[in-house]
Design a protein around this nucleic acid. Structure first.
Lengths: 187, 187
DNA sequence: AAATTTATGTCAGTCATATTGACGTATCTA
DNA sequence: TAGATACGTCAATATGACTGACATAAATTT
């Protein structure tokens, strides 16, 4: 790129013709776009998973490993098919990660009682220790973020997050999470 | 894997020795881990970005493209360095995505007024249309999720998300997002 | 004016995580 | 017995990230 001042003109400094919905547009726009929440979700989630990323790196693991051990820990006896549904990935993708976690002793599998084709997954003590460490960091962040909220406001946060989740195609895990509106944590 | 019923024993069905923090542990545990919020954040974010993913696929773009056009649209005149800071990626990673978006006319760049080394980035009408479409979908989800919240509860959600974000190392964009506690959207 | 630093772009190689498609085996069900 | 299901695996590919090295133009410092 030898030249500079390419692409003059056709630069948009005001969003006057964006969708048909921006609050700036005077015509038949819908409700204003929630740029604030959209960006807050992006940054909040980035930093939320960032907590875990640093620890995982030291173990030679990635986010994929975290997710697998997490759900296996939380829902003991989860089958491979269940896990694929929750994570929404293919079994080939899961394969590598699962294999590594099995080999390194973070999770184990047993044949299903009724259906011996199934592989029921369980976290080992080693796996639970890892997950507890990661959940501890994330809990600290959540606790800090909720410190100044009243109980009813904290409940509103929970309600909001629940309502953000798709209901159709909800699997076993999601059902159990959404079913019982767990009361505020006993503390 | 020819054999079955491998890995018997050493299976943990109760989390009695996890961290030192699980509410089930009787010893010196800390506050309970917020498994509920941790999982709600995972699923809520998964479905939140899923809205955009489907549309992006039709354009041959990925999430990386979305993030770039989004921030360029929202903060016109952003420099490449700013963008790298916000996205927390390397310039090599940004390079391919940025190049593609420039070539296909979703964003343009101009030399900086004071510092002509800088490339100030702007979204074109084409880029804004794309972003408005994606933000529309995400706004619909947010609006649905906030439908049953009172204004003060909605404010609590916003406050919670803000408090989830790391303050240190906040860049220009993050500052402007966190600075003015924007009041409830005018509707 | 020359030297250095800064902002950006790019080449080359690698890694993690995801994909589709095909195929094999054990096991359950009709 | 035949077919469907649950799981594992081989192969090839794509995306989005990384490190390291190097080039250019422009600003800044000496």
């Amino acid at each position: 790129m030898t030249d500079i001042n390419f692409a003059k003109g056709k630069v948009r400094t005001k969003s006057a013709a964006a969708g048909a919905r921006d609050a700036a547009a005077p015509g038949g726009e819908g409700p204003p776009l929630r740029w604030d929440i959209i960006e807050l979700l992006f940054f909040a989630y980035r930093d939320f998973v960032g907590d875990a990323d640093h620890v995982l790196e030291a173990f030679g693991f990635g986010r994929a490993h975290h997710r697998v051990v997490h759900f296996v820990h939380r829902y003991p006896g989860l089958t491979v098919a269940d896990l694929l549904g929750v994570l929404r990935i293919t079994k080939q993708s899961l394969g590598r990660v699962l294999k590594q976690l099995l080999e390194e002793g973070y999770i184990v599998q047993r044949a299903g009682d009724h259906d011996r084709r199934q592989r029921l997954l369980y976290a080992t003590a080693k796996g639970e220790t890892l997950i507890a460490k990661l959940a501890g960091l994330q809990t600290d962040r959540i606790t800090r973020a909720m410190r100044d909220l009243s109980p009813s406001e904290a409940a509103a946060v929970s309600q909001f997050l629940r309502a953000m989740i798709d209901r159709e195609e909800s699997d076993k895990v999601l059902e159990s999470l959404l079913e019982h509106h767990r009361p505020a944590p006993r503390d």
